[in-house]
Write a protein that binds this DNA or RNA. Structure first.
Lengths: 207, 207
DNA sequence: ACGTTCCTTGGTCCTAGGTCCATATGCCCA
DNA sequence: TGGGCATATGGACCTAGGACCAAGGAACGT
């Protein structure tokens, strides 16, 4: 039985989701929250398997709630009404396991709940597109990113928390050079800044 | 038997270290490198337990070598001649397990090799001082850093790779506010920038 | 009531980080 | 010999990040 918590500031939406989800024999809605703070509190209390989270909520919005969940960790599916591309990346980075738009087919939503509960990550097509092509212009050529020796070295130092100046000193090159390498690394990894690069490195064991 | 690799551009130093270390019954010097590149190559080839690494070397300096070691992972003791405080932090961040000055008592060095091999981290007193008081002015009050709710939230979002602007949007506050929180977090964690904070968060499971 | 902590916002100011564009060398490969 | 890649560097330029300083409101405990 998949225990689901619904967080949405719109009562009708909650009601709709609840009744439909409760019709599924393997899903049970264990609670509803009207804002982010309540969602966090209930997540702690009810320990749901999956949290359906609206992004736009009063008091504390979805992303804020996501950030606050650190530790408890239900699987979170972000359910947003407006199809604002720019919300996708931050949400996924903050630990969401799914990203869907509210116009999603109910049956697809049920599938999503099951998939996410099973450990998968699920994105609406538009969201996936936003993630891949979105922020950076490159279509993310995929594959096991190939960095040059020098770039790997620079990345390792970034992942160690060093500044460009420190890296330049370590490698005995000009800071300008380091910047160039950093830019290339960011581009290749498809991330926006050194912090994301550092996180990428540790997560992928490149550090 | 602790297998040690020595990396120093000064032949005399290498010779001195080798003869002394080889006198120890539980230590054997398996190789010598005259520069960083050679050190990396030999570390790969010989898979030593401990690497004694000079910082100032031609071709590729100690820090560069440290960065390149990613993966092989011998325990590294940085052995530096000049007592330049500013080298300590970057080296430790890059993964060094020990930091000693060359005027160290030979017996203390041997102890250090054993300690580091045993998994401990060992700093020369001056180095420890540089680490603690060094970069940041605060003496690092220690203890399990106590962040406020809001600060934890901000840190979580930093650790997710979000920018101040994105964080501000998530929490529905002004970017100025976020900056203040970030500054406070950096101060409390005793780190210099958001990248280090993010790494701290993931390593300490705060993300 | 009073002080403290937390959260918030504002302002200034400087530095670090990154982008874009161009260049030069060396090397390897076709 | 021409082309592509890796490396290193320069300059111009803009933005994000952070430090420092100040201050007001809310909550809470004494």
């Amino acid at each position: 039985m998949i225990r689901v918590l619904i967080a949405d500031d719109h009562p009708v939406v909650r009601q709709g989701l609840r009744t439909f989800l409760d019709l599924q024999e393997d899903i049970t809605v264990v609670g509803e929250a009207a804002d982010g703070a309540e969602a966090v509190a209930l997540a702690d209390e009810l320990v749901p398997d999956v949290l359906l989270l609206d992004l736009k909520m009063p008091v504390l919005d979805g992303l804020g709630a996501l950030a606050r969940l650190s530790g408890a960790l239900p699987r979170v599916i972000v359910l947003t009404s407006v199809s604002d591309r720019s919300d996708v990346a931050p949400a996924m980075r903050a630990g969401a396991a799914g990203f869907l738009y509210k116009d999603v087919d109910p049956n697809a939503l049920v599938q999503a709940v099951r998939a996410v509960h099973g450990g998968q990550v699920l994105l609406a097509p538009e969201a996936a597109e936003a993630m891949l092509a979105g922020a950076n212009g490159s279509p993310t050529p995929m594959g096991p990113v190939t960095l040059t020796e020098r770039e790997r070295e620079v990345l390792a130092l970034i992942a160690a928390g060093n500044s460009n100046r420190e890296i330049a000193r370590s490698l005995s090159v000009a800071e300008k050079t380091v910047k160039t390498h950093v830019s290339n690394v960011l581009m290749k990894l498809g991330v926006q800044d050194r912090t994301q690069a550092a996180l990428y490195a540790v997560r992928h064991g490149l550090a």
